[in-house]
């Protein structure tokens, strides 16, 4: 679904603003964007795989642009385990050897540290992309277009904010439940073992 479709969905079917006098389009767009960003962070999506060349004896691999998190790294078929920086430095002395460990910390957001020194080759990196707001917004799709079957949950999450903005808290509960259900569904769909539930907490202790 495009953001324009989601906006119509929220306006017509959730907040029922048929006269378009309660919310400006820009308000809805902002709320939808924030909701899509939050859900993407909760689910660690979207992901991408890229390759880059690594020189012999290299101690780092250049992180892809817009990298939020590195899930896996292999160089020349040798896979690495995520490891602390301390362990990385402990493993580093000596000549080049097959990859064992890597470390990418989004708090540093610099290169991917690897150990031991690389024998060189092609690195294959699976990572989570940081999202950028699409432009033009209307034709853009949430999460880079992946998982379109779960895009409506963004509308549910956005609607909760809109109801709170419009002081209609009594209408929040239903959409909050819908959102939690979709979040649970997508988590199971993606193989998650628990539902990320830190975005919303149900006062009734409901679907969490």
């Amino acid at each position: 679904m495009t953001f324009a479709e989601l906006r119509e969905f929220v306006r017509r079917e959730i907040v029922v603003d048929d006269y378009e006098d309660a919310f400006e389009n820009a308000d809805l767009d902002d709320v939808l964007w924030k909701a899509s960003y939050e859900v993407a962070a909760a689910l660690d999506i979207p992901r991408a795989i890229t390759t880059s060349s690594v020189a012999a004896d290299a101690l780092t691999v250049t992180a892809p642009a817009n990298c939020a998190r590195v899930h896996s790294l292999s160089i020349g078929g040798d896979d690495g385990l995520q490891m602390s920086v301390q362990q990385i430095y402990r493993m580093r002395p000596g000549s080049s050897r097959p990859l064992r460990y890597f470390n990418f910390d989004p708090r540093r957001a610099d290169a991917i540290l690897i150990a031991p020194p690389s024998v060189g080759g092609t690195a294959v990196i699976e990572y989570t992309l940081t999202l950028t707001r699409p432009s033009p917004f209307d034709t853009g799709e949430p999460w880079g277009g992946v998982l379109p079957q779960f895009h409506p949950m963004i509308a549910y999450r956005a609607a909760i904010s809109l109801f709170q903005m419009d002081e209609r808290e009594n209408e929040v509960q239903h959409w909050q439940n819908e959102y939690q259900l979709r979040l649970a569904e997508v988590s199971h769909f993606l193989g998650g073992t628990s539902t990320p539930a830190y975005l919303l907490s149900s006062p009734q202790g409901g679907n969490q």
Binding site: G77, D78, D79, G80, L81, R97, P98, L99, R100, P116
Partner: peptide, 10 residues
């Protein structure tokens, strides 16, 4: 799953 190829090679 924590066993990596590099360790097997070594």
């Amino acid at each position: 799953a924590a066993v990596v190829r590099g360790e097997i090679k070594r």
